[in-house]
């Protein structure tokens, strides 16, 4: 029994290591912004030094600007155009929320674009499941 348990655990650990190695995301954990933190900032009017862009289905987050799906090259161009005169120190938050990150075609091209442009405070809103469960269902602030 001990052997079986040990084998299961080692397999689990090995598969996690493998996954971590193969899934190199363009963002790191510090660049993931907790939705609760953003919601609090919006509610307390503390988003003046922040730009929030939707690169997914709909800009429902209060104060966010709609760019369109990040998988579309024309929308990435639009995002870059919007940001061309913005200071590289500005906090730029992008979000999608169509589906879990592993299935989302939008977040990676958009985040890469922010990195390429040299934004030091680029953030990806951590809507790890989707905009419904991670934002709407929590009654966080929305555009009307």
């Amino acid at each position: 029994m001990k052997r079986i348990m040990l084998s299961i655990f080692s397999l689990l650990i090995m598969s996690n290591v493998l996954l971590a190695q193969t899934k190199q995301e363009p963002w790191n954990s510090q660049q993931l912004l907790d939705p609760a933190i953003l919601a609090k900032k919006i509610n307390q009017n503390q988003t003046k030094n922040m730009l929030i862009y939707c690169i997914g289905p709909d800009a429902i987050i209060k104060g966010s600007i709609n760019i369109g799906a990040g998988e579309n090259a024309a929308n990435i161009k639009k995002l870059k155009e919007q940001l061309k005169n913005v200071s590289k120190d500005k906090e730029v938050v992008i979000y999608c929320g169509c589906c879990p990150f592993d299935r989302c075609p939008n977040v990676r091209p958009a985040f890469k674009a922010l990195k390429e442009m040299g934004f030091k405070n680029a953030k990806l809103l951590n809507l790890s499941n989707n905009i419904k469960t991670n934002w709407i269902d929590k009654n966080y602030p929305m555009n009307d």
Binding site: D58, I60, C99, N130, K132, T133, I136
Partner: peptide
């Protein structure tokens, strides 16, 4: 109506 559609509530849809 995106996620504001009544069907999303009626069918308790949490994700697509």
């Amino acid at each position: 109506k995106f996620w504001r559609s009544k069907v999303a509530t009626d069918y308790a849809i949490e994700g697509l």
